[in-house]
Simulated scan of single mutants.
Amino acid sequence: MRVLGIETSCDETGVAVYDAHRGLLAHRLHSQVALHAPYGGIVPELASRDHIRRLTPLIHATLDDAGLTLSQLDGIAYTAGPGLIGALLVGASVGHSLAWSLGRPVVAVHHLEGHLLAPLLESPALTPPFLALLISGGHTLLVEVRELGRYRILGESIDDAVGEAFDKVAKMLGLGYPGGPALEKLARAGDPARFRFPRPMTERPGLDFSFSGLKTCVMNTLAKTAATDQDKADIARAFQEAVADTLAIKCRRALRQTGLKTLVAAGGVCANQTIRQRLQTVAETEGARLFLPRPEFCTDNGAMIAFAGCLRLQAGQREGLAIQARARWSLEALAPIRS
């Protein structure tokens, strides 16, 4: 089965073709970073309009890369949510239109399930049960995966997602948008011994996260310094270390509580090397295996949607005539993926 995957949930237009037997055949991604950078964040209407401009050419280019025509596709998968509703509707409309015109089945994919399954693109030996950490600009979740499609949320952020916290702290430090990669680069020049920020919600039971107090700590610390380049680097280092430690502590706790011996981490923030190293340490000390997608599959992409869509199409799942797009959509509401 060859499946075209379409991702338009936020500010990246992703297209991919996945073959159930041969794996990923081709994928392309257009980022809107330059479009939104002057505004310091994502402008939803601009995001939607850019998806409209980019999606059709990207589909044709990706099919050319794969050496396929539209008629050789066996199914279409698109991100139906969660995300920006206008952006989602672009991918959903194109996905349904293609499916109707070709007489092929179409399936709506949960964006977070795409991220969660992204490590399987390169690690087919990975099978449930496992613990998943999903960290991105809009989400911070610890998820128990007992079988594909059946998810139980163990913990989540009660305020900002971790990626959002990175962007806001980066803005405080004058780093612009997007903040995560710029903050990680600045932190490399920081003195690890100068500041130590709290590891929020790690001294109480539970698996939920909170990063609002950590942002306040950054703001107060910055106000007490001369805000030199070195001051900012030291603060960036302390913030990144606090986030990485917090995620590691919660993952260790979740592994012990569930008894699981496999940890999967995914989402845009998972591209951060300090976080990846800290999670590797957790896995080693807990006798667990760690699976991480390569950095290009951490951010939003069409490959993860094509893969997740292929699994659901193979399981016989299909959409009706109604176009599905949801700004909010719980992972726990999904049906299991069973052949």
Rank of each mutant, 00 (worst) to 15 (best):
L279K: 09
H139Y: 03
G103V: 02
Y78V: 12
R28W: 02
W100D: 12
L120D: 08
L133H: 03
E113W: 10
C270G: 15
A92L: 07
H111A: 05
Q32S: 08
L142G: 02
G137D: 10
A223W: 11
Q280L: 12
F197W: 07
A306Q: 09
L292V: 10
I275Q: 09
G114M: 02
T127K: 15
G103E: 09
H60A: 14
R253Q: 15
R338V: 15
T13I: 13
L311K: 15
P192L: 01
R104H: 08
R28N: 13
A99G: 09
G316Q: 12
L313R: 09
P129Q: 07
K171Y: 00
D65H: 00
V145K: 07
V145M: 08
H51W: 09
L58V: 12
H115S: 04
A118D: 12
I235L: 13
C298E: 10
A308Q: 11
Q324F: 09
I323N: 07
K250G: 04
T225S: 15
S210C: 13
R253I: 07
D74A: 06
G5Y: 07
A333T: 15
P129C: 07
V33H: 08
V109P: 02
G309F: 06
S157D: 09
R188I: 00
R338W: 05
P82D: 06
S339D: 11
L133D: 01
D300Q: 05
W100A: 14
I275A: 02
I275L: 15
L311Y: 13
V143M: 04
F291L: 06
L133R: 06
L121W: 13
L24R: 01
G287V: 14
T258N: 02
G149Y: 03
A108K: 05
